[in-house]
Amino acid sequence: MNWYMHPKTNEALAANYVMGTMSARVRRRFEKVMAQRPDVAQIVSQWAERALPLALSLPPQTLSAGSWTRLADTLELNVAASPKRWWQRWLAPVPVGALAMGLVLGLSLPIAWQQYVQTSPTAMQLPESYVGVLATPQGNPGLIVSSLRRGTIVDLKVVTALPVPAGHHLHLWRIDKDGVPTALGALPAAIPGEILHMSLSQPAEEAFFPALELAVSIESDQPPPGQPTQPFVYRGLCGKIWK
């Protein structure tokens, strides 16, 4: 008999899981069920939310002074252990896939441009622009964002389309050097392979100048978000194409 098909049983198991009254063996078995049953995992999440006030009722305990250093050493991280160089600050938040894609574009675009310049009868200089190459959380190419330096229109090319639930939209954010996101606006409905356009409320130079990165999250249509309420679904570096 599959006990996990009964809603009441799931509620009781989820409650006991969160409250901690399961033995280790039973808990591991239940975690296997959770991994295969998002509905059961969701019930556990609801119980965890109910129990959160209990956890937060405990007086906070100060971590030992070396806690972060120990953690960073274990994971070989380099955050804030010493002031980072400018290129480390630039590259640290970038998913590996986005970095690889950026390198490929960075190497191939100048070559392609050089060939174009050499063969084009009307060779011209690349206009001053902002360009963002955003990756999915899995590191795949996701979205290319570009805008003329003093323009107010952003061109968007969706490389990997994502399903957006009804009543929601994709929202574009700039992320500054302190990691603070600022809303830039809602993206139009995506059509893979098509160039889409989005209007900015200010010239691109003002909108993108503070941006170290650009990111996109899925947000509810109402009301407009002040901060991202969901994880980023695209994220990557933002750079300027002029001296």
């Binding site: 955050v79 640290a92 994880p231």
Partner: peptide, 12 residues
């Protein structure tokens, strides 16, 4: 959410 994208400063 930022940690899921490998953001070390968010982890700190």
């Amino acid at each position: 959410a930022r940690i899921a994208l490998g953001d070390q400063s968010a982890f700190r």
